[in-house]
């Protein structure tokens, strides 16, 4: 088995130490673009697909993305082709909600796929979303909430964001969200989970091209 195959295998079996050892060997012996094409991109797609199929759960998804981002940090990004380098995303969990696990997974997913992410964190005041839109002019704003008590604030945040920039797209997600609720509160899209966030984002980006 080649170094690249061994590294891919350790990613599939979530063996962190083996992955780290294999990573050093691969970086020493392969070009960054080759690593991106043979490990990073297929590894990420496979992990996301396994999560979508229910074959792995959140811990494995988190660890895989952590390992892949670690790998990426050792490569000279300027030398390699990354998709969507120009797409900017503002992310945050709405005011009153301290649950950021879902947002953090989405953030990692976006970063892995090459988006430029501005993470506002959790419990973000609604004005701060609009301020960040003014400052960074993103393509998409992602708002998460896990609670029913904060849905009305998501709606207000969307209103303010749209007042700031009518062209920015807002995508929402979280335990309490559904496509119907998303539409009801004025969002442009809804993502059920991290497994579909890239497709849902692409859909709205393509629509506004």
């Amino acid at each position: 088995m080649s170094h690249l195959q061994e590294l891919m295998q350790s990613l599939r079996t979530f063996e962190k130490e083996t992955f780290k050892k294999g990573m050093s060997l691969v970086i020493k012996n392969h070009e960054p673009q080759e690593i991106i094409d043979q490990i990073f991109t297929p590894g990420l797609d496979e992990t996301r697909n396994r999560y979508y199929q229910g074959e792995i759960a959140i811990p494995e998804l988190l660890l895989s993305m952590q390992l892949l981002m670690d790998l990426l940090s050792h490569l000279d990004i300027k030398q390699v082709g990354r998709k969507r380098g120009n797409n900017k995303i503002v992310l945050g969990v709405i005011e009153g909600d301290p649950h950021d696990l879902g947002k953090n997974i989405i953030k990692r997913m976006y970063e892995c796929y090459g988006f430029q992410v501005y993470d506002l964190g959790k419990n973000v005041f609604i004005n701060n979303f609009a301020e960040k839109v003014r400052e960074t002019k993103p393509d998409v704003v992602g708002i998460s909430t896990m609670m029913s008590t904060t849905v009305s604030k998501v709606s207000k945040a969307i209103e303010l964001i749209k007042m700031e920039s009518s062209s920015v797209n807002v995508i929402v997600g979280g335990a309490f969200m559904t496509a119907a609720v998303a539409e009801d509160i004025g969002a442009d899209a809804y993502a059920e989970s991290a497994a579909v966030i890239i497709e849902e984002t692409d859909k709205i980006l393509n629509k506004t091209k």
Partner: peptide, 11 residues
């Protein structure tokens, strides 16, 4: 924290 716990379960 759920995120740390889930990673600790594996590590």
């Amino acid at each position: 924290g759920v995120e740390s716990l889930y990673l600790d379960i594996l590590e």
